[in-house]
């Protein structure tokens, strides 16, 4: 056992990269749930984004077009969910699950000819001098741009929800769609936009996986990342800053268990792989122990079908 081989600096730097896909998907889902919609199709939208982005990047040779197409692909899939749940008033849980299964199958079909291909390298920040500063350099200034994009997005969502009129309307729709409707806000329109934003974020998360973190395409490569993103939103009690914390915690454990193995620590890896989920369960128990407090956090209209009867 040689724990000194694990460099904390590199550990932090690599957990940021490892957490980026789930962070992107989770911040998108947070906005969707804040508008009162529960979309369980994150996994499906992520993997659709992963293959759309990968295919576009390979075909055009440009990772930026790849990311754009990934966002479009994820959003396109979410439109199906939006139409079915908002116009046909279907059950959101069942529709979301169907969307995940559909996305997994669709991506496997689209990706058949892309297995084993190398995608073009994406842009990495490499500032002379600044990137070489010990500790701070590797952690803050030498990442792929998706890491910064995800952080910017989290800040943006926090600001939007807290300080803008649009954010207030979105939250109102999520808390009480009847009241928001009575005030003259377009509930369905707000929700569709939120769902599409969530889809685009999930798609970007998928592309962060297939174009940056791996970078390669394989069938089912998201391997449950979408579900982790859903868990993180609840874990974070619908607060953007806590989503960041949750994503880094999950990413950190994933990276840490590999580091411990390489350093020769003989704890069975299964315990470490379990730990983030255990923490989620504990947090959920703690949250629901105090009903009044948890009711404050969760959007009141979450998962409820809205039908404008008047």
């Amino acid at each position: 056992m040689d724990l000194s081989a694990i460099s904390p600096t590199l550990l932090v730097a690599s957990l940021m990269v490892a957490a980026t896909p789930i962070l992107l998907a989770a911040i998108g889902e947070l906005v969707v749930e804040k508008s009162g919609v529960l979309n369980l199709g994150v996994e499906g939208m992520m993997i659709t984004g992963a293959i759309s982005g990968f295919a576009a990047a390979v075909l055009t040779g440009s990772p930026m077009i790849g990311f754009l197409c990934a966002a479009l692909g994820g959003a396109a899939l979410s439109v199906i969910f939006a139409i079915i749940t908002q116009y046909f008033l279907s059950n959101q849980v069942a529709t979301g699950l169907a969307l995940t299964l559909f996305g997994l199958g669709l991506s496997a079909m689209l990706g058949q000819s892309y297995v084993g291909i190398k995608p073009p390298a994406s842009v990495k920040l490499d500032l002379p001098l600044v990137s070489d500063i010990p500790v701070i350099g590797p952690i803050l200034f030498s990442h792929d741009f998706t890491v910064y994009a995800a952080l910017t997005l989290v800040t943006g969502v926090w600001w939007f929800l807290k300080y803008t009129r649009g954010g207030l309307i979105l939250r109102a729709v999520g808390e009480s769609h009847d009241a928001a409707h009575a005030l003259g806000y377009k509930v369905v329109r707000v929700r569709i936009l939120a769902i599409m934003f969530g889809g685009a974020c999930a798609g970007l998360g998928g592309a962060a996986l297939s174009l940056v973190r791996v970078p390669q395409w394989t069938e089912g490569m998201t391997a449950g990342a979408g579900w982790i993103a859903l868990a993180i939103v609840v874990f974070a009690s619908w607060k953007p800053a806590r989503v960041l914390l949750g994503a880094y915690l999950f990413g950190g454990v994933a990276v840490l268990q590999l580091n411990l193995q390489a350093a020769g620590v003989s704890i069975p890896v299964e315990y470490l792989s379990m730990s983030p989920y255990l923490i989620t369960i504990v947090v959920l128990v703690v949250m629901s122990a105090n009903r009044s407090k948890s009711a404050l956090n969760a959007p009141a209209a979450l998962g409820r079908v809205f039908h404008a009867s008047r």
Binding site: A5, S7, L10, S14, R213, Q216, L258, N259, A262, A263
Partner: peptide, 10 residues
């Protein structure tokens, strides 16, 4: 990929 990166970091 993650495993390879960790080995290289170490």
């Amino acid at each position: 990929a993650d495993a390879a990166k960790v080995l290289i970091e170490q």
